[in-house]
Design a protein around this nucleic acid. Sequence first.
RNA 1: GGAGGGGUGGGUGAGUGGUUGAAACCGCCGGUCUUGAAAACCGGAAAGCGCAAGCUUCGCGGGUUCGAAUCCCGCCCCCUCCGCCA
Length: 423
Amino acid sequence: MLDPTFVRENPEAVETALRNRGMDASLEPVQAHDRRRRELLVEVEDLRRQRKEASKSIGERIKAGEDPAKAKDEVRQIGDRITTLEQELNDVEQQLTDQLSTFPNLPDESVPVGKSEEDNPVTRTWGEPRSFDFEPKAHWDLGPELGIIDFERATKLTGARFAVMMGAGARLERALIQFMLDMHTGEHGYTEVLPPFMVNGNSLYGTGQLPKFEEDLFKVHPHDFYLIPTAEVPLTNLHSDEILDVEQLPISYTAYTPCFRSEAGSYGKDVRGLIRQHQFDKVELVHFTTPEQSYEQLEKLTSHAEEVLKRLELPYRVVTLCTGDMGFGAAKTYDIEVWLPGQQAYREISSCSNCTDFQARRAKIRYRAEKGAKPRLAHTLNGSGLAVGRTLLAILENFQQADGSVVIPEALRPYMGGMERIG
RNA sequence: GGAGGGGUGGGUGAGUGGUUGAAACCGCCGGUCUUGAAAACCGGAAAGCGCAAGCUUCGCGGGUUCGAAUCCCGCCCCCUCCGCCA
């Protein structure tokens, strides 16, 4: 959520930012509700003060043996008036937060203005796409041919957009998870977390998936539980409603979880293969930090995700998302895109964002800069380190051989029991 | 799922209708003393909104009342016992 005070004082800056994000919402209703809220607040508070004082004197009169009937009557009228105004105040506040919670975060100044992914500048590129002396296959052919991915049986078990991993495929998925977690905990200083894979609506509000993006989620009926669309939700909400000690910061968490997304609205997109599944594994990175350090942390977080690809010898590039392509809660995002020979294209494998105070305000994540100081909102960041399914398919496509086998990247072999090749 | 008990400030915990935003203790911060520290003593400090006056907050929501941490109703969470289960 945006800072209401900032919106009040900088309406034109906010409108420009929203327009750059491809949202032409008018601030007019927000401003009207904001003004009305402040009027009501002043009036209600004044009436409450009157009632408090009057009630107190009634108590004193009773003790003094006087008849308080008339005073009671007067105070009751004040009380009725308060009830009426409070009702209106609640309505106005509800509408105000409803409107404000549909606004995305404001982009950082360094974010390029643009409409779509076409406008995302390439920030850096690593590695050379391998040249093949044969026609490289897509993983949706390689996987089934090697007998390590079964799309058809998954359809029988559940439906479209699910996959069954078999044998060396299942092992490879597990090896990647372990490889990534070991690197982030052992070398990058993250604390490993194993969170619940279901969260309540309040947590999803905290990170910004609710109320706007409910249709993207799987809900567990009849509870107020949802399957997590990313570990960002449980990890970030770990410190909701808390005041952290500045000495604890930055806090860095990593977690492996499966992620569940309904993919509503992406019919016909990436229908083949592992790219877009309803369930996929991901190793997530989440940081809690101070406003002063958050952009520095974003660079670090991104480099941690990149390191995984370097070790796996997978060519990639980093793009800076333009204003029109950023996610809801992000102020700045780097996407890491891995080279896929089967598609002859770079495809997203990680997305690293600084959410500044946007989630912290919703989830009430604060820290105290020094003893006795007022709590300030922390900054939260998150990134994939990495999407495991997409990493697996990138390995299949990049390390495929002319005979249809796949060489296992050296760094991964210890995690594969020494296996050097699949097929 | 059934029965019972409980949710108060950083922690423990008092408070069952009135000036209690909340005792006490522990912890924390500052000071005195000390070469320094400890101990002792003195003092300070909850959070949110607001320029401020002030208002709100004792799990959450509603109700009773002139007035609710305190009474009533609903919900959530925790603990104990039983049932079930990995």
